[in-house]
């Protein structure tokens, strides 16, 4: 439900909202919610509702893209490690260990910071720090799937290795990856907003939720809505994806132990 509403908001919202999200002085500066500006205006007289609706586009777009890259990278590495075995497996898994030896957000912060503050660099940073979990899960699933009869049968009939990997092993990893991926979208939304809040992601005047929150923090006493509106937007989005992920897990893979990673 929440996710559906969000998707509609992200696609149609920007067309519907009355004001340009970056236009200043469309109303008085720092005005509490009124009929003309249902969520108030900010320190530059911009309409907060328009900004938050536009923000949905950034957050969802980035989260989907970043999660997509993580899934693809992780699945390739996991498939290769699990199927090839031997030293390839050993080397790839050590790489995963090294990657997982860092708290994700710290590493993402450093990568994004060194590349320079921008939304694109935050996406790169978040994509490269998050694939290892998928690789581990995919490898585990592949290892158990490899022992199944149908894989042995495929091999017996002389099917090429890549074909076995694609036709028989890939489908078995789809379910866990989808569940983790959905739960992961929420954490990516959080991380993107967090990095933008720190000042590494979207730069003002971009209507990104984390950036908006950072802009509003100097007006806590006078304008409570400036931090709370984007805050609620982020929380609802993450909640939506967490609910969806939990639902998917119950439906697809009830035995899957999901460890909710922080990033």
């Amino acid at each position: 439900m929440i996710v559906a509403t969000l998707s509609v908001t992200a696609t149609l919202g920007p067309v519907v909202v009355p004001y340009d999200p970056t236009a200043t002085n469309v109303g008085p500066q720092i005005q509490s919610p009124t009929l003309a500006h249902p969520l108030g205006t900010d320190q530059l007289g911009r309409d907060v509702l328009s900004r938050v609706v536009h923000g949905a586009r950034y957050s969802l777009g980035i989260a989907l893209l970043v999660t997509g890259i993580r899934v693809v990278l992780g699945t390739i590495v996991g498939l290769a490690a699990g199927y090839a075995g031997g030293w390839i497996d050993e080397a790839l898994m050590r790489l995963v260990d090294i990657q997982l030896a860092f708290p994700g957000l710290v590493l993402a912060l450093v990568v994004a910071g060194i590349l320079g503050p921008s939304l694109r660099n935050v996406m790169i940073a978040l994509a490269v720090v998050g694939w290892a979990t998928y690789a581990r899960i995919v490898r585990g699933t592949v290892l158990s799937a490899k022992e199944r009869e149908y894989v042995a049968a495929g091999r017996l009939f002389g099917a090429p290795r890549w074909r076995i990997a694609r036709r028989h092993l890939l489908p078995s990893v789809m379910n866990p990856v989808m569940v983790i991926g959905t739960l992961n979208i929420g954490t990516v939304v959080l991380a993107t907003a967090g990095l933008s809040f720190i000042g590494l992601g979207a730069q003002p005047p971009t209507p990104e939720w984390g950036t908006m929150l950072a802009g509003g923090r100097h007006y806590l006493r006078t304008a409570w809505w400036l931090v709370n509106v984007p805050g609620i937007a982020i929380a609802l989005t993450v909640l939506g994806f967490n609910l969806l992920g939990d639902g998917l897990r119950d439906a697809l893979d009830p035995h899957l132990q999901t460890r909710v990673e922080e990033v």
Partner: peptide
Amino acid sequence: ALIGVSMPNFWLGYLLIIVFSL
């Protein structure tokens, strides 16, 4: 618990500041 996981901690921090400090 679900709400707790979903809340960005920087927002929660400001929320607490607004209520308990200000």
